[in-house]
């Protein structure tokens, strides 16, 4: 069912596609965590307008499909004066989209720390940034690490959606090979197996990690 010769003949294109997918995943994860952290802190801030703004952002992105968001930026980014192609602009799309999800994970992580610790830190004379940095975030990060990594696996899978706007990520380059050789059935099966081979071991590792961290907590 899989034509290995075909895969080998096109390994360059396929590898390039996989690298693109991985780059997009890495970029959006890092960018999403940074932006998500800011969003979460804004959400938890006592300054109402900031908190509301962050909530609006997160709710907007969480109530629409990623495919739609891909199309938003696909059509809109160039209108805002950025002369970059869609293969670059999806980096922004995914970062902004994932930030909404990461911010919820981070918020939950922060809120999982008991209030007493916050009070204790203040009582010891720590400022808000100090409290966050030395007391809350280190613990929160540990609690949310498995969820974050799971989100990254989901994100990696979601990057395949960029194929819809003609980008040659791993899925996209698989399609190109498939159509050039009239072998869509074989290549789509190959794509499914390849994605599984990347995601499954990571998922398994994450499960272990989850158990270990859960015990410590």
């Amino acid at each position: 069912m899989i034509d290995l010769q075909l895969v080998l003949d096109n390994r360059e294109l396929l590898t390039e596609g996989m690298l693109y997918s991985l780059q997009l995943t890495a970029f959006a994860t890092l960018g999403g965590i940074v932006l998500g952290c800011l969003l979460a802190l804004a959400r938890l801030s006592a300054f109402k307008p900031l908190s509301l703004l962050s909530a609006a952002y997160v709710n907007l992105f969480r109530s629409v499909p990623l495919v739609l968001v891909i199309f938003w930026f696909y059509f809109l980014i160039p209108y805002f004066g950025f002369q970059i192609g869609p293969d670059k602009s999806v980096f922004i799309t995914f970062t902004l989209f994932e930030a909404a999800y990461f911010s919820e994970i981070i918020r939950a992580g922060i809120q999982s720390i008991s209030r007493g610790q916050l009070a204790a830190a203040y009582a010891l004379g720590l400022t808000y940034p100090q409290t966050m940095r030395y007391v809350i975030l280190p613990q929160a990060l540990r609690n949310m690490l498995p969820v974050m990594l799971t989100q990254t696996v989901v994100l990696f899978q979601d990057t395949s959606l960029v194929t819809i706007i003609g980008i040659k990520d791993f899925m996209g380059s698989t399609s190109v090979v498939a159509s050039n050789n009239g072998a869509m059935t074989e290549m789509y099966t190959f794509a499914a197996i390849a994605y599984f081979c990347v995601c499954f071991p990571i998922s398994m590792l994450l499960k272990r990690l989850h158990k270990r961290i859960a015990v410590i907590r």
Partner: peptide
């Protein structure tokens, strides 16, 4: 480009 994107991309200067 694709058939869906060629016109927007032309109009917006890409």
């Amino acid at each position: 480009v694709t058939s869906q994107t060629r016109i927007p991309l032309m109009q917006n200067g890409t």
